[in-house]
Simulated scan of single mutants.
Amino acid sequence: MLKKAFGDETLSGRNVYKWHKQFKEGRESVEDEERSGRPSTSTNVKHVKQIKDLVLKNRRLTIRDLIDITGISFGSIQTILKEHLNLRRCAARLVPKTLNLFEKERRVNVYQEMISDYETVMERIITGDETWIYAYDPEIANQSSEYRAKGEPKPKKSRQSRSKIKVMLTVFFD
């Protein structure tokens, strides 16, 4: 009956029975009573602004980094990020190689140069293989994740751009 009358705003059955019992025992006020316990001081306006400024300056900060910088507890920072700032952690969206016009042109020129240099050698080759050797491995999705608000687009990251420094290792057998 309560669900029909009040919809989603209805108290759960358990809470209805608890309130009924308290009123039957003599309670007259519907206001919250004083409770023992430590008041929440970490989620005040000052800390929310401090966390917001830090995250907007560097979106890749982790909660542990924010703990070290501010001295606020893990749970409080998590509450500030999720409930007060409406931020969530987003991994970068992987896209195919992002080559600009000059990089594409350079690839064509290098290929044509290699073909002209090795035309006579190509006749004797039985088999060959090639691979790229990178200077360092790319970041994993966790390492490149950032805090973003709900409406903001995900950051993009090239799938193959592992390093600016790479060498092509080519092996031929004749």
Results as ranks from 00 to 15, higher is better:
159 R>K: 15
129 D>C: 09
149 A>G: 06
57 K>E: 14
169 L>W: 10
9 E>L: 12
75 G>I: 01
65 D>Y: 02
119 E>P: 00
69 I>V: 11
30 V>S: 10
61 L>I: 02
115 I>Q: 14
141 A>V: 08
129 D>Y: 03
144 S>G: 12
40 S>D: 15
54 L>S: 07
149 A>K: 12
66 L>N: 04
138 P>M: 04
25 E>Y: 00
114 M>K: 01
105 E>V: 04
41 T>S: 15
164 K>M: 06
14 R>Q: 14
126 I>D: 10
111 Y>Q: 08
81 L>F: 03
167 V>F: 14
91 A>E: 14
113 E>N: 12
76 S>A: 14
40 S>M: 07
71 G>L: 04
53 D>C: 07
170 T>Y: 12
154 K>P: 02
63 I>H: 01
103 E>V: 07
24 K>P: 05
115 I>F: 03
107 R>H: 09
76 S>N: 14
75 G>Y: 02
48 V>T: 13
148 R>A: 05
94 L>D: 10
160 Q>H: 14
114 M>F: 15
85 L>F: 07
171 V>W: 04
132 W>N: 08
125 I>V: 15
62 T>M: 03
83 E>C: 00
42 S>E: 15
125 I>Q: 02
20 H>D: 15
133 I>P: 11
15 N>A: 06
164 K>H: 12
32 D>R: 00
164 K>Y: 10
83 E>K: 10
152 E>P: 01
5 A>M: 11
86 N>D: 12
92 A>E: 03
50 Q>L: 12
171 V>K: 04
147 Y>A: 05
18 K>M: 02
77 I>E: 10
163 S>G: 10
174 D>I: 09
19 W>E: 06
89 R>W: 15
49 K>I: 09
51 I>E: 09
66 L>M: 11
115 I>K: 13
63 I>N: 05
25 E>F: 01
67 I>P: 00
142 N>S: 12
13 G>L: 07
59 R>A: 06
46 K>D: 15
109 N>M: 08
106 R>T: 13
58 N>D: 15
94 L>C: 07
120 T>A: 07
142 N>M: 13
93 R>P: 00
158 S>L: 02
117 D>K: 08
78 Q>W: 14
115 I>R: 11
60 R>F: 03
41 T>N: 07
128 G>W: 13
24 K>W: 10
128 G>M: 13
106 R>F: 13
69 I>Q: 02
